[in-house]
Design a protein around this nucleic acid. Structure first.
Length: 572
RNA sequence: GGCGAGGUAGCUCAGCUGGUUAGAGCACACGACUCAUAAUCGUGGGGUCGGGAGUUCAAGUCUCCCCCUCGCCA
């Protein structure tokens, strides 16, 4: 039994995530966690909300709530949605937790002690009316290049020219609209990533088996232009982890907090500590996942994330870990994803374009989405969600191939033999051929799941379902029954055992349907199949079962058209 | 403008370090079956692998140029 630590990139607190976010990190991480648990490994699966930063403050202000209250509410919303999608986190934490405050300050202290922190004085735009420093993109004004009057301080989105806030004509705060802006000096801490560049590079180069998407992005940041740059890790905000030496003042850093990208990945560790707190565990219980001097040396750590998160996980976070000079567990494998597009464009949180997690669950159960999203995961390139494709895939794969298989075998047995596995008879050559085929396919499926080749795993799983239909079709127990009921009985037993096998194999993709199938088969044993011939005799003659309701209802054309229309615009 | 990822059947995608007639699912056509959610199973048609040049006995797979899409950055 192996020990596997799994983290999903933590979703930002600000609003409900769309399906593109979901398929880019949390959902595939859940697939992997479920599979590894299914195989009997010890799994720690951690996710959390990423709560700090200006967008959270502004969203809270817009909602008319204190930011802490807003975050607490949104955490609950996201937590509920995660449950709705059956994301099986061992803990869903919060980057604003006390644990994360402590750990973030701890890392900063260690980095400072080891000489990897530098104080830098810089000029920044301060809004008197808002009583805060403004990030470049929160300053608006007229573009000196094209005259567009809503250009942002970092770029004019009309003419795309890159700007400096001081370039803007009549600059104003994007928050309040106030023009009372001044440039002030402020001091910040920088993480000296340049000093750690060699170490990081050597570490990246030693990762032979990482996806090209992951390593190519990391190497680009290491070598592009002037190479890896030092990075500011503090901000002039009030909502965040205070810049302190574990509670003691940090000279010159009064009223400042750590930058959200500094504390967010540390939450992976803090989240595990939160798990311990929430479950009555000890310090040692979570440290054995993260400290190689305290039992984590045999842990395999896998991270899941969208491609936009790769630089932080391959460079900044490792720099934090390495610079601490403490024996923290580093990631062993980074699975990264491209983007999922929506109906000819992009999913967009800011524009409200696409289908969001709450909307998705309001029209269909989680398994439908899980199956489609995972079997179309944007692994090698961006992929595209269209309602037609969704409808066809779900109807064909889930309703026709799998759902109907369960339906045909249970109903046939019920009508000819009653609701228990019939006795007598022996299976023939066709059954032997099926067993051999499944033996091969299940091993291939396992290999794809181990390798996190999600689409390929889905394709193989589907082929495993199809094999059941092929068998029934060629064995034709309904014909055999007329001449030789015993032989038909043996076929039916095999078919019902297939339902159980499918439930176990499919659980990582479609956990609800899997549970329904197991329950119908009256089976509590979910252990992963060894030799297929054995697995297909697990349910014995005389074992009672129930004929389940339709496992997956089909999506009708009218529904699809309705949803297509409803989700064509932007979200209110 | 620079960098990165792509451009393979109508659609969504596989094709590793170059090597038998380029694959899968869906869609389409035909056939079989009737246990089942008009479900299932089989067979078949369909691609000059973005364009051009080159290397090679051999290129979708390597090199160069060009075109197009997407993303990131200046």
């Amino acid at each position: 039994m192996a020990r596997i630590l799994i983290t999903s990139a933590i979703p930002y607190i600000n609003g409900i995530k769309h399906l593109g976010n979901l398929v880019g990190s949390q959902l595939p991480a859940d697939l992997y966690a479920r599979y590894m648990r299914g195989r009997g490994h010890e799994v720690m699966f951690i996710c959390a909300t990423d709560e700090h930063g200006t967008p959270a403050e502004l969203a809270a202000a817009k909602a008319g709530k204190p930011v802490a209250e807003y975050c607490a509410e949104m955490w609950q919303v996201q937590s509920d949605l995660a449950k709705g999608f059956r994301l099986s986190f061992d803990h869903f934490g919060r980057s604003s937790s006390a644990r994360n405050h402590t750990l973030t300050q701890h890392f900063a202290k260690k980095l400072a002690e080891n000489g990897f922190i530098e104080e830098v004085t810089e000029s920044q735009v301060f809004s008197v009316a808002d009583n805060r420093f403004l990030p470049d993109r929160y300053i608006e004004g007229t573009c000196p290049n094209c005259g567009y009057d809503k250009a942002r301080g970092d770029q004019c989105e009309n003419c795309t020219k890159q700007l400096d806030p001081t370039d803007l004509i009549e600059p104003r705060s994007a928050i309040s609209g106030s023009t009372e802006l001044e440039v002030r000096e402020t001091k910040h801490l920088y993480l000296k990533q340049k000093s750690l560049k060699g170490e990081i590079e050597a570490w990246i180069d030693s990762q032979q088996d990482w996806p090209v998407l992951t390593t190519s992005i990391a190497k680009k940041w290491l070598h592009d232009g002037d190479g890896l740059q030092d990075r500011g890790i503090t901000r002039d905000l009030s909502w965040g982890v205070p810049v302190q030496f574990e509670g003691a003042p940090w000279t010159g850093m009064d009223g400042k907090v750590f930058y959200v990208w500094f504390d967010a990945p540390i939450e992976y560790i803090a989240g595990t500590a939160e798990w311990a707190d929430a479950n009555g565990k000890t310090e040692a219980d979570w440290e054995r996942w993260w400290r190689t001097d305290k039992g984590a040396e045999d842990v395999r750590y896998v991270q899941f994330m969208g491609k936009d998160n790769v630089p932080f996980h391959t460079l900044s976070f490792p720099a934090t870990i390495m610079g601490s000079r403490e024996p923290w567990k580093k990631v062993d494998y980074i699975k990264s994803f491209n983007y999922l597009n929506y109906d000819g464009g992009q999913f967009s949180t800011s524009q409200g374009r696409g289908v969001f997690m709450d909307q998705a669950l309001s029209i269909l159960p989680a398994d439908y989405w899980r199956w489609w999203l995972l079997s179309h995961a944007p692994e090698n390139s961006d992929s595209e969600f269209t309602w037609e494709n969704f409808q066809v895939s779900v109807n064909k794969d889930l309703a026709d191939v799998l759902g109907n298989f369960v339906s045909r075998i249970t109903k046939f047995c019920r009508s000819k033999f009653g609701e228990a596995l019939p006795e007598g008879g022996q299976t023939g050559e066709r059954a032997q051929a099926l067993i051999e085929e499944l033996e091969a396919r299940v091993r291939v499926y396992e290999a794809h799941m181990e390798a996190m080749e999600i689409r390929k795993a889905a394709t193989e799983l589907r082929a495993i379902w199809v094999a059941g239909n092929e068998y029934l079709q060629s064995a034709a127990p309904w014909s055999v029954f007329k001449e030789d009921p015993d032989r038909a009985a043996a076929m039916v037993r095999l078919g019902l055992n297939l339902v159980r096998l499918y439930a176990i194999l499919s659980e990582p993709f479609i956990p609800d349907a899997s549970a329904t199938m197991l329950k119908a088969m009256g089976c509590g044993d979910k252990s992963w199949p060894g030799p297929i011939a054995e697995a297909l005799t697990a349910l014995k003659p005389g074992h009672a079962f129930e004929t389940p309701d339709v496992l997956f209802a089909k999506i009708a054309d009218e529904d699809r058209e309705d949803w297509q229309k409803r989700f064509s615009g932007v979200r209110a």
